[in-house]
Design a binder for these strands. Structure first.
Lengths: 223, 223
DNA sequence: AAATTCAGCGAACAGTTGTTCGCTAAAAAG
DNA sequence: CTTTTTAGCGAACAACTGTTCGCTGAATTT
């Protein structure tokens, strides 16, 4: 029951994962990565690949899941930092930008396969992004007392802007990154400001109780 | 001088372009399209491809340019419609969504190659998006009397949200599209509202003249 | 009428790919 | 100790890729 066998298996599994990651670059997309290349880089025979993953897709989905997990862990850290005081937006932007810098390949993978040709990939990544939005929307609703629908829309807009700017930051020299961060913060503040402005104006016209018209509870669909 | 020869050449050139376009689908990215496939679909020998394009990349860049051109033409139509009265935001969103619906393949190409592995592609598409932002920023500055920097940031945020939502709308059943459009309009209104709110608050604190701190005139870089 | 240009072709090339099959040797189970 | 399990291997496969080369025949130029 030592599991010396299982240990070794896990080891070459990691080797495959790392081999894939190490081959990703601005010039090389995951989708154009070949099974044989990955196996070669991991120092195993092409045929042995199948002992660990059925497809290259299965390997890729593993990368997506691990990337999403990392991101969510960072978010938790961020919420802790927030308790110490400081601007939510600034802290969140910093965390996000750090994540991108420290996980360039994974973030590029997320970006590319988000609009890629594999439905499974797209859904997996959409799911990760949805987590992101939901947590933010909950925060805005619960902590910032924003109306539920407005919170959802604000979170949606913010996450979209954040991911889009992240894509630009990905291949930007570090020197230009600072300015981009400041722009990001301003844009997110703009969104936040607009949301509260809309909320108060709705409250004003409609009295006090239910502010925004109840949009269908149809859960997480398009936006 | 009839040019019967040039005519024929142009004809098969179009055939190649259309062949490429017709093979694009949610399951097939341009980057994974082979020269031989395209030639086959266009009913010419693989070797003849080189009489028209040096690369598949060159063909792709042609598609990007034509797509951008179409989009800009639609924008011009939009500005005309605007003169008749109506909400700028709603009209712009409608135009954009129409473009996406009527040019699904091209828009998908833009999305995919925007974060693709060819630098030339990425730059070409970034250029198209920049046109978009600039025109919107100019409009906000000139017609809506918004401060230059705020106009730039608002345009940036709006275009990012618009493209991001467009990506989601791409593979959404028509029935869900209407709700998504309404969400989009609300989010863009949020951004607009936030921008003017920030403008007036800056004006209030700083007096009357120069409102926002002059950000470097460093032209179109990251944001 | 003769000479030139040139879009399109077919054959051939070396290189890659994913996947199958049956085998080995060592770990695990009996 | 004997049997079973199983990660890893090498050979072989059919299918594809981009690109070269020299040739044709018709449109164009001289």
């Amino acid at each position: 029951m030592t599991g010396i066998r299982a240990k070794q298996k896990e080891k070459t599994r990691r080797a495959l994962i790392n081999a894939a990651l190490s081959q990703l670059s601005p010039q090389t997309a995951f989708s154009s990565l070949s099974l044989r290349e990955v196996a070669r880089e991991a120092n195993i025979a092409p045929t042995s690949f199948y002992r660990h993953f059925q497809n290259m897709d299965e390997l890729g989905l593993t990368l997506v899941d691990e990337g999403g997990l990392t991101l969510r862990q960072l978010l938790r850290q961020g919420r802790q930092r927030l308790a110490d005081g400081g601007s939510v937006i600034r802290i969140s932007v910093d965390i996000f930008m750090d994540f991108i810098s420290n996980n360039r390949s994974v973030f590029r993978l997320l970006l590319q396969e988000h609009s890629g040709t594999s439905k499974e990939f797209r859904l997996a990544i959409a799911r990760e992004i949805h987590h992101f939005k939901s947590e933010l929307a909950d925060y805005l609703h619960n902590e910032r007392r924003l109306h539920e629908d407005l919170a959802r829309l604000q979170a949606d807009a913010m996450v979209r802007v954040m991911f889009s700017i992240g894509a630009d930051a990905l291949d930007l020299p570090a020197s230009d990154k600072a300015a981009l961060i400041e722009d990001t913060i301003l844009e997110l503040r703009m969104i936040a400001r607009g949301a509260t402005a809309l909320q108060t104006s709705f409250n004003a016209t409609k009295g006090e109780a239910g502010a925004v018209k109840k949009r269908a509870e149809s859960a997480p669909k398009g936006a």
